[in-house]
């Protein structure tokens, strides 16, 4: 009973998924839906089981692109945010520009990256990075700025240097906001990787979907989509687990409020 209570969220998620898949299967069977319109879950699983190596290879490529793009977005994004918070010039120029560009549909820029960087993995990583970095920069800036002025005064009164205040006060205080940005960022990085694969190249799940479309091979496209769904979910939880490890105080306070 205890186990059920502790994992009630997980159990409800699994239950909803199982019911959805069952309803889907029954509806396909009842309406005799043709595979190229909407394949039944059983058909999708069969398709996957026929060529697991093929899907693994493409999924691995997409995962690599996403992770590299995301990691670069975090490193660059946090560096930019620190610069923006500490320099009025960067705030007026770079930050203003970033906030303005954030509302532009960045996916539209994807073909340009192929022109600039060719058809290898570089443009895909670059697109993932570009799409992911906005929320990371904006939320990190927000977090670094939100550090409570009493706390900064306390540190200054204890003769802390600017760097010490950044490392020991501003950063830890900004972590919650940074993680909010990174959770959005990791999903965007995956979108960026897929968009990159749509635009050019011969590898990755985006490429598999595009290829299946050309051959009306809907089951294969669905396998790719299912893998993408699983991948996106796992990547999101990866960031959340990192948050739990790094911010036990924050998470514990949050759960204290919800109970």
């Amino acid at each position: 009973m205890d186990w059920i209570r502790k994992n009630d969220k997980l159990i409800s998620v699994v239950a909803v998924l199982v019911v959805t898949v069952l309803v889907w299967e029954v509806l396909c069977w009842y309406f005799e839906a043709r595979d190229f319109i909407l394949p039944a879950p059983s058909r999708i699983i069969m398709e996957w089981a026929e060529a697991p190596g093929y899907f693994l290879k493409h999924a691995g490529y997409t995962l690599m692109t996403t992770l590299v793009g995301f990691a670069l977005a975090v490193v660059l994004g946090v560096a930019m945010a620190v610069g923006i918070v500490h320099s009025v010039f960067l705030d007026r120029t770079l930050y203003t520009l970033l906030v303005a560009l954030n509302s532009v549909p960045k996916v539209a820029l994807a073909p340009l990256f192929v022109i600039w960087m060719g058809t290898g993995s570089e443009p895909k990583i670059a697109i993932a990075l570009m799409i992911a970095i906005f929320s990371i920069v904006i939320d990190t800036v927000l977090g670094l700025r939100s550090a409570d002025s009493d706390m900064i005064n306390m540190a200054r009164a204890a003769r802390a240097s600017k760097l010490q205040i950044l490392m020991k006060i501003r950063f830890p205080m900004a972590l919650a906001s940074m993680f909010a940005g990174m959770k959005v960022g990791i999903s965007f990085a995956l979108i960026g990787a897929i968009v990159g694969e749509f635009v050019a190249g011969e590898t990755g799940l985006g490429h598999v979907i595009l290829l299946s479309q050309g051959m009306f091979d809907t089951p294969r496209a669905f396998v790719a989509i299912v893998i993408l769904g699983i991948m996106g979910t796992l990547l999101f939880y990866m960031v959340e687990v990192a948050e739990r490890i790094l911010l036990p105080w924050h998470v514990s306070q949050r759960s204290a409020h919800t109970h």
């Binding site: 009493d150 706390m151 005064n153 306390m154 200054r156 009164a157 204890a158 020991k168 006060i169």
Partner: peptide, 16 residues
Amino acid sequence: PPDDMGVVFQRDILLD
């Protein structure tokens, strides 16, 4: 801020 000084504020502002 001088060296030989300690400050206590209204809120405890401990680092969580």
